[in-house]
Amino acid sequence: MFTYILYGCAAAGLAVSFSKDRGKTVKALKKAWKSFENILPQFLTVLVLIGLILSILDSETISLLLGTKSGIWGLLGAALLGSITLIPGFVAFPLAAALLKNGAGYMQIAAFISTLMMVGIVTIPMEIETFGKRMTLFRNGAAFLFSIVVALVMGVIL
């Protein structure tokens, strides 16, 4: 269902863009392909990784590590993992969805996704260049705490 809406939007967008400016549309398509080709290696890597992880770890092990009963340690572990890793969302969501299907808890997965997006330990040096040390540390620290709160709330709601 959602996929059809997406295809509809893309088709409409292309049609409007094409009627306005042919060259720009071609450029946009080239950019689309380039950004796809950019993530392709990581994308393929994570797909194989998901396959491997899920066939080696059974659902019982996953629910033990990240399941609803893994509690605060599962939550903190997931949040830390998300802060350290640098995987694009296009790759992270399939992984998260696969983990959920196999017994991970909503709370733990929400913590992982939230820190993955908002907290970037690896990119802190780049951020300091722009915002300065104190601002960067403040933002990342606050984002980490906030992610925990989001995870707790989502664990209760969903």
């Binding site: 295809y7 689309a32 994308f43």
Partner: peptide, 25 residues
């Protein structure tokens, strides 16, 4: 698992990246 995931992703990805390219331009 890898194969079914790949097929699923490839079917979703084209419109997303087309929209992304259009936005960027």
């Amino acid at each position: 698992l890898t194969k079914s995931n790949l097929v699923e992703m490839i079917s979703v990805i084209p419109p997303i990246f087309i929209l992304l390219g259009l936005l960027d331009i």
